[in-house]
Amino acid sequence: MEVNINESTSATVIYLNGSFDATVSRDVREKFDGLISKGLQNFIVDLEQVDFIDSSALGALVGFFKKVRVGEGDVKLARLSSQILKIFELTQLDQVFEILPWDYAKKIG
């Protein structure tokens, strides 16, 4: 899975591309950890190019969220397809992560 990072002043946007499942979740967790160790605090995970997500990916995102919250930062999600959003709703993780509107990029500059 491709992971691209864009560090802006207000938040670091993490663009994920591909199938976010158990085969890649360990690698993605390591990349998340790398960003935290750089001292970055506020993140937006852009899931527009993610076509599938499973429970290991949810675990990776929850782990990331918990670590970021320790440093008083935040992880928000953006551009989830209806199917992926449904998974977040089913697992009630939509109540954990703030889900940004589709045009969030206009607001963060």
């Binding site: 990776a60 697992t91 009630q92």
Partner: peptide, 18 residues
């Protein structure tokens, strides 16, 4: 059963059932 929201694992069977 749906696990606690901040739990990192154990959502697999729940998702299958859903």
């Amino acid at each position: 059963k749906c696990v606690s929201t901040l739990h990192e694992n154990s959502r697999g069977v729940y998702l299958i059932n859903s």
